[in-house]
Design a protein around this nucleic acid. Structure first.
Lengths: 263, 263
DNA sequence: CAGTGGTCTAGACCACTAT
DNA sequence: TAGTGGTCTAGACCACTGA
């Protein structure tokens, strides 16, 4: 029923690996090695009887492949091999600390300033925090060794909860700082832009003048759509790039996306 | 069994809307309106008998919610409401034409140059196309009205297929230009960086000197991992930003990601 | 131990497609 | 009309959790 590599692989029903998952891997192999986009897969009935498993289990395997974008099904016609979607570009970016931990780099961060301020008109215009509301305002710079990489400025709407520790401010994302608030954040808006650094920022990040940077802005909202926090992060443009892989991969599949340092 | 809004909603088995989907919507409502992260859902058995449907159907609904990140299940314990993941940032970016069509903008593009070249040492170093291989080289600028927004430079490994039309070069992504090749692309690598524009680029995009830009590089590979094409796109930094929403949304959920123009 | 989610089965009916 | 995928059922056994 299958092409070249068909006879080799069977399903082991006594294995601790679920049957549907074994089937996913078998079908992936067939797709990547013997088939072309547009080719039709065997019908669910055929696969079911061929491997001696139930049709529902076959459907589960095919559902996984569908979600992964490897195949698509058409009612009344059949299931077909999909073209790899090479134009959809998904850049994934966690918070700074997660990124560094993923790379096994030990970051080294400094709290430059932290104080209570009252929201002014500018903040209201930009974020929607009403004028006069008390906010915790702080600035952090993240370094690897002696090299500053990221500079962050954040506002958190003040609440009477237990005070935040310096170590929390330094190595926690805005949303994790806020999860214990009375009204925790449930929605986040982020904007990625590119811009030139100001003179102050050039000094803090210790870069040449006229260095561009990634500017990531985040606003967190509670369930009532009230803004709870506002942060901006500046990533040195000379040291950061975002890499993304899509498509089919033979044996090993590169991880998707991620914010990678310049090297 | 459910909280506030429980009694109101029943499942209509005669509806043309699948039962599992009706259940997804009911559970979503419960989660968003009456529950908090960490709360436990009724067991699959309870939901199954409560609505008079099979457990497999309940499981399908819960599987959808799990994939959407709204709940998570723990074997032997139960199913719980998840915290919205506010730190995972996914920037989505299609090709230029898709982006424009999504916005209903009629783009207006010019082919600046198109000719056959031979890969030189620099291209080999950067992309891996062997020195001497014949490539189609072309440059395009995309405008809205009279304003240039994107400038693209592309190399496609030459093949004996039917020649590409100018209109194809202008409004097709690299991967769609290549899908009919003998060995179509199955893998794509993209890198997003920020950099300053060169003098040439400043002239082409008609921006002020010292304007930063998004620099997106794409390399397409065939199944044998041979590079098939190489493109770089420059998006004006003063006109582009990438917006991303995550979390829970009450009635209407903003679309994820997207490359939006500066306004 | 009882209760939970995870997997799997062997049917069934349906809407849709192609001939 | 025959064949396809889409949905749904009413069971079953398992591994795991927590009391």
């Amino acid at each position: 029923m299958f092409g070249i590599g068909s006879a080799k692989r069977k399903i082991d029903k006594t294995s601790f690996i679920p049957v549907y998952y074994q089937l996913v891997k078998i079908l992936e192999d067939e797709i990547h090695n013997g088939m072309m986009p547009g080719d039709v897969l065997p019908t669910e009935q055929e696969i079911s009887t061929y491997f001696g498993i139930s049709r529902m289990t076959v459907r589960r395997a095919i559902a996984e492949l569908t979600r992964a974008g490897k195949v698509y099904a058409e009612k009344g016609r059949g299931t077909f091999v999909a073209k790899p979607k090479l134009d959809s570009l998904v850049f994934e970016l966690g918070d700074y600390y997660k990124e560094m931990k993923q790379k096994g780099i030990n970051p080294n961060s400094k709290l430059l300033e932290a104080r209570i301020v009252r929201a002014d008109d500018k903040i209201f215009q930009e974020v929607g925090i009403p004028v006069g509301v008390r906010c915790l305002y702080y600035r952090v710079v993240h370094m690897v060794g002696n090299e500053p990489l990221v500079y962050e400025t954040k506002y958190i709407v003040y609440s009477k909860k237990k005070p935040l520790l310096e170590v929390e401010l330094i190595n926690s994302s805005l949303s994790s700082l806020l999860t214990n608030h009375v009204d925790p954040p449930v929605r986040s808006k982020r904007v990625l832009q590119v811009r030139m650094l100001s003179d102050d920022e050039v000094g803090i990040l210790k870069v040449e003048p006229n260095t561009p940077a990634f500017h990531v802005e985040q606003i967190l909202y509670d369930i009532e759509n009230n803004p709870l926090a506002w942060g901006t992060s500046l990533y040195r443009g000379d040291r950061y790039k975002i890499v993304n892989h899509t498509g089919w991969f033979g044996r090993k599949s590169p991880k998707d996306g991620g914010f990678n340092d310049g090297e």
